[in-house]
Computed example of a mutant assay.
Amino acid sequence: MNGTAIGQVRRFQRTVTQRIGALDDAFMGRDRPLGQARLLWELSAEGSEIRALRARLELDSGYMSRLLRSLEADGLVVVDGGGPDGRVRRARLTPAGLAERELLDRRSDEAAASLLAPLSEGQRERLVVAMSEVERLLAASMIEIDVLNPRHPSARHCLQAFVAELTSRFDGGFDPARSLPAREEDLRLPAGMMLVATLRAEPVGCVALRLCPGVGQIKRMWVDPAVRGLGLGRRLLAEVEARAAAHGLRKVHLETNRLLTEAITLYRASGYEEVAPFNDEPYAHHWFEKRLTD
């Protein structure tokens, strides 16, 4: 890793934490630190499951409990049980909590305006554009890729979204029953695996790999439209190739439809070469191969 780049990142972090008031005990002039204010922005009158909230904010359970207890003591949050057995705990804003969040919103708008005010119009535009790019790149760095059971809710969400997108894009739609099967048992070790990408604990992409003798078959690759442009497709492809190589496979195959132009561009840019059809997938127009070892 480039030492100069690391130093720049650290300087950026110090500047931002100071400028936004993260070091203050009384964030935005209120009698609470940034952590508590941040939690208020994540909640609503309807409430959120604490487990999902903790995963989304990437907080450990002890710190989350302390934040919620402080907000409860101030009368801003109520924590109660939910679900059939009462074990699913939820947190929701009280009327006082909603009022506090509205006040924080107003003061945050004022703080943002004060940050921009000393700058010229051109500088403001440059800063806002740069902030947007930094936000996207930080989001890209937060995406995690893991192997999941195809029955996991995040894996199922991705597979359903994959089918829905192909149905909307293909001439005549997409019927999984007509396509070559990718059964659950084919996407679990030792037969294969399912890689799922998550951002803030939400599924945003997937790719499947079937481990066949000498060759890996890449299937069911999908990226959520909300995160396209962040390089996730290339990351998923590189990760599934690395997993295939780790299992001793010499090459990988995949097929795709002519309407999926973005995917075709990605495959070619990633070193895949078009080859003669190696299966009878009815929705495929292009077949690709990439050698993983010389």
Rank of each mutant, 00 (worst) to 15 (best):
G3W: 11
T4H: 11
Q8H: 13
Q18A: 14
I20E: 03
G21Y: 01
A22W: 10
L23S: 11
D31Y: 07
L40A: 00
E42V: 06
A45E: 14
A45V: 14
G47P: 03
G47Q: 03
G47L: 02
L53E: 01
R56I: 06
R56E: 12
L57A: 11
G62C: 04
L68E: 05
S70D: 12
L71H: 08
E72Y: 04
G75N: 06
G83R: 09
D85M: 00
R87Q: 13
R90D: 02
E100P: 04
L104C: 06
R107I: 08
R107N: 06
R107V: 08
E110V: 13
A111R: 14
S114F: 00
A117G: 00
G122M: 09
R124D: 00
E125M: 12
R126F: 07
L127E: 03
L127I: 08
V128P: 01
E133K: 13
E133D: 13
E135C: 10
L138T: 14
A139I: 09
M142D: 12
I143K: 07
I145F: 06
V147A: 15
P150A: 07
R151L: 13
H152N: 14
H152M: 09
P153D: 06
R156L: 12
R156Q: 15
C158T: 04
F162D: 00
F162W: 08
T167L: 00
S168L: 11
S168D: 00
D171A: 15
G173E: 06
D175M: 05
P176H: 08
P176K: 05
R178T: 03
P181K: 11
R188K: 13
P190T: 08
P190L: 11
A197L: 06
T198F: 00
A201G: 10
E202P: 04
V207M: 02
G214M: 10
V215L: 09
V215N: 05
I218T: 04
M221F: 05
P225L: 09
V227K: 07
R228G: 03
L232E: 03
R235M: 07
L236G: 03
A242V: 06
A245E: 11
K251W: 01
E255G: 03
N257G: 01
L266T: 05
S270L: 04
E274H: 03
V275Y: 09
N279F: 04
Y283E: 02
Y283H: 07
H286P: 01
K290Q: 06
L292A: 08
T293N: 02
T293Y: 04
T293S: 12
